[in-house]
Design a protein around this nucleic acid. Sequence first.
DNA 1: ATGGCAGAAGCATTCTGA
Length: 281
Amino acid sequence: MLIATWNVNSIRTRLSQIIDWINQVNPDILCLQETKVMDDSFPLEPFEILGYSVEVYGQKSYNGVAIISKIKAENIKKGFYSCTDSDHNIDIFQEQKRLISADINGLKIINVYVPNGSTLVSDKFAYKINWLNCLASFLDEQQKKGELICLMGDFNIAPTNLDIHDPKKYEGGIMASEMERDALNNVLKGRLIDSFRIFEKNTGHWSWWDYRNNAYELNKGWRIDHIYISKKLSSKLKSCVIDSLPRANLRPSDHAPVMIDLSLNDNNEDFFEDEDNFFEI
DNA sequence: ATGGCAGAAGCATTCTGA
């Protein structure tokens, strides 16, 4: 089962590239971020023609997430529905459409577009940290229910300095600060693992390259798009790859798709027998 | 220290992103 995430930076501008990629890769689930379109304007048909169903949670101009899946998503939830660990009221997170979750094939699929945060001294940075704290409480709720979680999207955080092309230049700054990494680790709480790092321990692998300064041609990127899975799923994880080729397209998204292969064809009962049988990070 | 590139809104230029 192929599960992918891609910040496409406008569904309308990138539509033909997304369809091309789907035709090449044939993913079972594709989570999109930065669709930048209201729900009634989302181009559903090109995906439905290919046999996918689409769940959207968008807004005008900014943000917007979508889940595209061969198996119809169930129990679709748009946004947070509680925020027990945050000092802030959930209402401040409802305007920005950054999270959609659903049940697909026994998995709790959670698609997120984490706020960028601008600079460490900005109100947007405080919003980012609060948003991540709310995501942590959201994950706590999922864990209580015993869900098998697949949390993916654009996190706008490099988890370690291995995930930045020039860590000295960006150390402590936005997407690389200790506060952001602590907030991310508080979401993961050791219960979720970074799929990519199961297979690749070295630096030099990026999912985002700035449009400016020839960053892609110079391969000056960051790894800020991630797929985190429950430890219970780790024995089913066959691969995790970043497909950087779409970044070389004409008029590309600044992000590349990230994809995992989960072998869920077996009897799912052995998930629970495998609870402690996960890879060491 | 600043802008650089791109998309949306909307038609000149600003806002936002990462």
